[in-house]
Amino acid sequence: MNKPLIIIFTTIVLDAIGIGIIFPILPSLLKDLTHTSNVALYIGIMTALYAVMQFIFAPVLGALSDRLGRKPVLMISLGGAVLNYLFLTFSPHLWMLLLGRAIAGMTSANVAVAMAYITDITPPEKRARRFGLFNAMFGMGFIIGPVLGGVLGDHWLRLPFIAAAVLNGCNFLMAWFVLPESRPPSREKINLSALNPLRPLRWAFSIRGLLPIVMTFFILSATGEAYGICWALWGYDAFQWNGFWIGLSLGAFGVFQTLVQIFLPGPATRLFGERGAILIGIACACSALVALAFVREGWMVFVIMPIFALGGIGNPALQALVTRQVDPDRQGQLQGVLTSAISLASIVAPLFFSTVYFAVQQEWPGAVWLSVAAVYLIAIPLVLQSTHAKTKATDHPAV
């Protein structure tokens, strides 16, 4: 693996740790600031605020990375993350906490720019494997982050925010001094109309074959939101799991998911093609979800997890497929549009799946997983449509 990839993957691990490190202590912090024990509404507001700002600004930052280069926009994003965590560390009032999350949402281009960077330096035939490694690094950070946040939070409630600020500061310095630019700045002047957040979305919808893929990203992201909303509630209602077992189950899934993302996306794409890998991933995820709906003993969940994790092999193939739909000078804009789709899913999906779970909680908590499988199935005709569309071949610099 070459140096730029090592640096960008390290950046993603540190970024994911920084995000996950605050999860264990955010409820306690909100209780401290609001002087109320029921903070679910405030958590929802913070989550929605971040997602709305990301939805608006991610396409703009992606388009800017096509004009200014990847590195300057990554610097803006990492600097915004440091500012956000400092707000969280020293905010004595709720409005400062919300302001910090708004700034983080505005500058949250880390993932989009990193994916555009990988696209810049990777030939098409290697992208599925490298996007798999990308997802594995992000998953690894999310395994480490909550554990580290819980340990640090026991010493001081604000300590995880300081640690997150330090990690993002190290990220900033590493990218500034070590990471080479993958795309030289364009000589074209920036048209202010290009900063219209709706313009990249209109551009994406105008490209044949791209809209079904964006919609597929939205659906897969929406299904991913269901686990964060329903997993802990389901574990408690179905098996009377305590915090230890819920954490253990999530950690076990994270390990399986990381192993799958490291070793399988590349071989799966070579054997079955991008469309085949995506469809196999959806089939594995749906099979596991149906099984989860009917399990009666907690240990059965751990048996199903390897099949569940295999559902992840389709995501890198989908990411590789979408990069071949546009020219190299539009990759940042494309990744910004995809980030907006993910953000929109983060706004809509929690409301939908929490409503479904509330409806089935008393009679059959596991039925919520059937609704997730049903949403997954909507993606199948979209995948078939997108892979039948003519794919535009482009030349990309490889390393």
Results as ranks from 00 to 15, higher is better:
residue 256 F to Y: 12
residue 91 S to D: 00
residue 337 V to L: 03
residue 195 L to Q: 06
residue 341 A to P: 09
residue 62 G to C: 06
residue 135 N to A: 12
residue 146 P to G: 06
residue 40 A to Q: 12
residue 156 W to N: 12
residue 28 S to N: 15
residue 280 I to A: 13
residue 123 P to V: 07
residue 32 D to W: 05
residue 340 S to R: 01
residue 116 A to R: 06
residue 7 I to Y: 11
residue 15 D to V: 07
residue 190 I to N: 02
residue 197 P to D: 08
residue 205 F to A: 15
residue 195 L to T: 10
residue 151 V to F: 15
residue 336 G to M: 05
residue 229 I to Q: 14
residue 206 S to P: 03
residue 189 K to V: 10
residue 287 S to D: 01
residue 306 P to H: 09
residue 271 L to G: 06
residue 384 L to S: 05
residue 177 F to A: 12
residue 396 H to D: 00
residue 357 Y to C: 00
residue 358 F to E: 13
residue 81 A to W: 06
residue 177 F to R: 15
residue 258 T to Y: 06
residue 348 V to D: 02
residue 100 G to W: 07
residue 366 G to M: 04
residue 331 Q to F: 05
residue 266 G to N: 06
residue 133 L to K: 05
residue 311 G to N: 02
residue 264 L to E: 01
residue 8 I to L: 03
residue 3 K to G: 01
residue 382 L to Q: 08
residue 307 I to W: 03
residue 276 G to N: 11
residue 102 A to N: 10
residue 357 Y to W: 02
residue 382 L to A: 05
residue 362 Q to H: 11
residue 210 L to H: 05
residue 355 T to D: 06
residue 42 Y to H: 12
residue 226 A to W: 00
residue 338 L to Q: 09
residue 386 S to M: 05
residue 38 N to A: 11
residue 235 G to Y: 04
residue 81 A to S: 15
residue 395 D to W: 13
residue 17 I to D: 05
residue 349 A to W: 02
residue 47 T to S: 14
residue 189 K to F: 04
residue 371 S to F: 14
residue 166 V to Y: 01
residue 390 K to M: 13
residue 20 G to H: 04
residue 330 R to T: 10
residue 294 F to M: 08
residue 265 P to H: 06
residue 49 L to T: 13
residue 355 T to I: 00
residue 290 V to Y: 07
residue 337 V to G: 03
residue 16 A to R: 01
residue 55 F to R: 00
residue 85 Y to G: 03
residue 297 E to N: 09
residue 106 M to W: 05
residue 322 V to M: 09
residue 227 Y to E: 14
residue 327 D to M: 08
residue 31 K to M: 14
residue 6 I to P: 04
residue 248 L to N: 09
residue 366 G to K: 04
residue 237 D to F: 10
residue 16 A to Q: 11
residue 302 F to I: 11
residue 378 I to V: 15
residue 360 V to E: 01
residue 74 L to N: 07
residue 170 C to L: 15
residue 141 G to L: 02
residue 131 F to T: 00
residue 369 W to V: 00
residue 64 L to M: 12
residue 262 I to L: 15
residue 241 W to V: 00
residue 139 G to R: 04
residue 207 I to A: 02
residue 139 G to D: 07
residue 391 T to P: 07
residue 106 M to K: 01
residue 376 Y to I: 05
residue 160 P to T: 08
residue 176 W to L: 15
residue 311 G to A: 08
residue 253 F to A: 08
residue 296 R to D: 13
residue 47 T to K: 13
residue 15 D to Q: 10
